[in-house]
């Protein structure tokens, strides 16, 4: 049910709305469910609303962990 995708905030509009880009696909969404959204933030968009902000640092950490887990497995073979 919860189809939602990360998109980059490229412009803040009046009335708690924002333009977001998802790989060049542009859409206007509401950011009223989040506090202090800034241009450049990545937010999770669901049915036209931003639900959460993506934490860049955590994202990098998750990716590093993924890479590490895979490598460890390869070496263990």
């Amino acid at each position: 049910m919860c189809l939602a995708i990360p998109a980059e905030v490229i412009d803040l509009l009046p009335d708690e709305m924002a333009r977001v880009s998802l790989d060049g696909i542009l859409k206007t969404i509401s950011v009223g469910l989040l506090d202090e959204v800034a241009v450049g933030d990545y937010v999770i968009v669901h049915v036209g609303h931003a639900l959460a902000r993506i934490d860049e640092v955590e994202a990098q950490r998750t990716l590093a962990l993924l890479a590490e887990m895979g490598v460890a497995a390869e070496e263990g073979r």
Binding site: M69, A73, E74, R77
Partner: peptide
């Protein structure tokens, strides 16, 4: 797509799958 494509990497998937099979 940032924050999407990275998590669809087939090569990384093989690594994680290997870890699951090993553990």
């Amino acid at each position: 797509m940032k924050h999407v494509g990275e998590y669809r990497d087939g090569a990384l998937a093989q690594g994680i799958a290997a870890a699951i099979r090993a553990e």
